[in-house]
Simulated assay, not measured.
Amino acid sequence: MLSRTAENLFWMGRYIERAESTARLMEMGQRMAMLPGAGERDEWRSVVTSCGSAHHFDKAERISEVAAARALVLDGDNPSSIRACLSAARANGKAVRTALTREMWESLNDGWRKLESVDPGAQSLRRELPELLDWTKRRANLLRGAAETSMLRNDGWDFMRIGGFLERADMILRLLDVKYFVLLPETDVVGGGRDHHQWTSVLHATSATRAFHHVYRGDYAPWQITDFLLLNRAFPRSLSHCYRQTLGHLEHIERRYGARHPCHDTALAMVERLESAGMGELFKQGLHEFVSDALAVTARLSREIKEAYHF
């Protein structure tokens, strides 16, 4: 496969995953904003920080739902916005049109200009936002479903899935880090009622509520939620699952070409690190320290993949 084709599929996978993750974070923000005292805590800042868009707002500015939606849903100039991500995913897919099946291209192309026609007025946007977020998640699911049922399990499949899993790993790490250090800067509320609602909002944002209940039977202790989202191999949005899948796809490519690169060793080292971690260990030893290091490893892994396959 040409490096250019691999690169476009890799980034198509990343951008479609990023669009869905942003929609999920916006939904989390809506839930948190309904909690008592949300206005004083500037809950929406945690959402824009998770998406890497805090620099679009003044530090002294209190961010509203409408302002967050304009930046994270409609702003085509913000590379983290849903509109920009879906546009970039389509552009990458169009560049390698022959590598996609008809079903995949239709899922990318149908209605892709929808967000351009949305009224950015406060009242209209607030009313339409839930439907727009649902529409975004459906777009992502349609592409993944089309790929799952129609795409050859070749290099293109592997690079697209690697991009998606790396983006998913990055977002779960950012979400956990911001949850602990932006949403809850006051140590006296950790473990309290508000803390409980905000930690469970993280489960909602990752569609993990039912899966978590099956494992922990409703015991929503912060360290157990952290363990589930970082270490549970069976949950498809956990860090462990994302890294195991990334490693698996890298190994597929390695077997095809008989060449191993530093990216393989980086992914393997993280998988082994996560598998050796004990229950509650990451939370107790320092969630922020682990997450910061894991974010750096994820960024390095992305660079190593690009270098190995000449993106």
Rank of each mutant, 00 (worst) to 15 (best):
I16C: 05
T266P: 07
N109K: 02
G218D: 00
L268W: 06
E186L: 13
R255T: 12
G76L: 08
V297W: 15
A147S: 14
Q30H: 11
L239M: 07
T22H: 04
V189Y: 05
D42E: 11
M12T: 03
T246K: 07
E61P: 01
G193F: 10
N8M: 03
S87C: 09
S46I: 02
R113E: 02
A71L: 11
L274W: 04
I63G: 04
L203C: 01
R144D: 15
E27A: 04
N154H: 15
R303G: 14
S276P: 03
N232K: 08
F57P: 02
M1Y: 12
G193T: 08
A299M: 15
L250G: 01
H55E: 10
Y309I: 12
W223Y: 15
A140E: 10
F10H: 00
V66R: 08
R127M: 13
L203G: 00
W11K: 00
C242Q: 12
G193P: 08
T49A: 14
A23I: 10
A169H: 00
R233Y: 11
K179M: 01
R90N: 02
D177P: 02
N232L: 04
D170W: 01
A88Y: 04
I253L: 13
A84K: 02
R138T: 11
C263K: 11
H214C: 08
Q123C: 11
V96G: 05
V182K: 05
L176S: 01
E304Q: 15
D170G: 03
G111N: 02
P79L: 04
S21L: 05
A60L: 08
A84P: 02
D188V: 12
R18D: 02
A23K: 04
S124F: 05
L115H: 02
E304H: 13
L239Y: 03
H252N: 14
A169D: 05
R18M: 09
R102A: 09
S53H: 03
T187P: 04
S240Y: 10
R168I: 07
A234E: 13
D158E: 09
R260E: 15
V178I: 09
E148C: 12
R45W: 01
F228Q: 00
R153P: 07
H204W: 13
S50N: 03
V297E: 14
N8V: 00
A211I: 02
A146F: 12
G191K: 07
D177Q: 06
G111F: 01
L72P: 01
A269H: 14
R126Y: 02
V297A: 15
I162G: 07
D265H: 08
G280H: 06
F235E: 11
L86D: 00
H204T: 11
A308M: 04
E307F: 12
G76C: 10
F159D: 03
I16D: 03
G29Y: 02
G156K: 03
S302K: 14
T206C: 09
N109Q: 07
E103V: 00
D219C: 06
F290W: 15
T298Y: 05
E281M: 10
M160I: 12
N8R: 04
Y15P: 00
R174C: 00
R174S: 03
M279K: 13
T200K: 09
W11R: 01
V118R: 00
